[in-house]
Amino acid sequence: MQSNGIAKDPVIQRQHFLNVPFDIIKFDDVVELIAATRNADGFRYVVTPNVDHVVRLSAHAELKPLYEAAWLTLCDSKPLVLLARAMPLKLPRVTGADLTACLFGTVVKDGDHIALVAPNEAVVARMRAKFPRLSIGAHVPPFGVGNNPAELAKCVDFVVREKAAFTFLAIGSPQSEKIAHAIAMDGRAVGTALCIGASLEFMTGMKRRAPRWMSRAGIEWVHRLATDPKRLWRRYVFSVLPLLRLTLAEFRQRRTARVPASR
């Protein structure tokens, strides 16, 4: 479903894996596509689901339309890539952190106007210090904005007013996705919005990403758990069984689909 008026490149194939949509498009092609459409009419948004998103969607089906309506939905998880490969399904990995850093290094140009929906004022200050040649508009919504219609409407109005080429929604999931979907449904905004989690904090040095070798090995979650155990241990522990159930169900479904019907 494309509600934003921007046609998806016809060569991009959208697959559903673990009941979540994913676009089969490589990192460089994502960057090229975003660059090529930066002046397109209308509004579009990009989501980057990982294991946490997948498990949440399995329990809250009402969130699935937020992902189905996205212009691009990109896999931000090496464990999901490895699970997909066992199906077999080739799922490219495009992390929100890597994509954000690349866009600021290539597609976002000096003098551009961008908009931030940020977790706090410190992130905004760091971004303005790091990119003094950009015009940066910012809005810091209160905690729980995703369940507060009045505050959600303020986020929509902010993005509409800014008319930015790029909007970075950096307040975590599913708040960022709810805001992006609400903007798309409103119909007045322009530009490309990206739901990119803590990417701005990584880029400004406020948080440290896992070493590259851990990311390549698919154990980036170990680094995150070690740096924030009180907040994350429960999330990771309680994600294991739902993810296992979803994977087994996916495998059975795909195996059944491959078996020819008996005559």
Rank of each mutant, 00 (worst) to 15 (best):
A150T: 15
V108S: 02
L57R: 09
K109H: 07
A70F: 02
Y67N: 06
R85Q: 14
P79F: 06
S77W: 03
V117I: 15
C75F: 02
D110H: 09
V81A: 14
W71C: 11
V117H: 08
V108Q: 01
K90M: 08
V107C: 03
A150H: 13
A61E: 14
P142D: 11
L89C: 10
L57A: 10
G111E: 06
R126P: 05
R56F: 12
G137L: 05
W71E: 10
V55R: 07
G105K: 11
D110T: 12
M127T: 09
K64A: 12
V81K: 13
R128K: 15
L57E: 03
L66N: 13
L66H: 12
T73F: 00
A125E: 14
A150R: 15
R126V: 11
R128N: 07
L57G: 05
P132L: 02
V55F: 03
P65Y: 01
H53S: 06
L152F: 06
Y67W: 03
K130R: 14
L80P: 02
E68M: 11
S135A: 14
H139G: 06
T95A: 06
L91E: 00
N120R: 11
R128E: 13
H113S: 13
L83C: 07
V123I: 14
V107H: 01
V94K: 00
L152K: 09
L57P: 10
P92S: 05
H113M: 10
N120P: 12
V94S: 00
P88K: 15
S135M: 14
T95R: 01
E62P: 05
V81Y: 05
S58A: 14
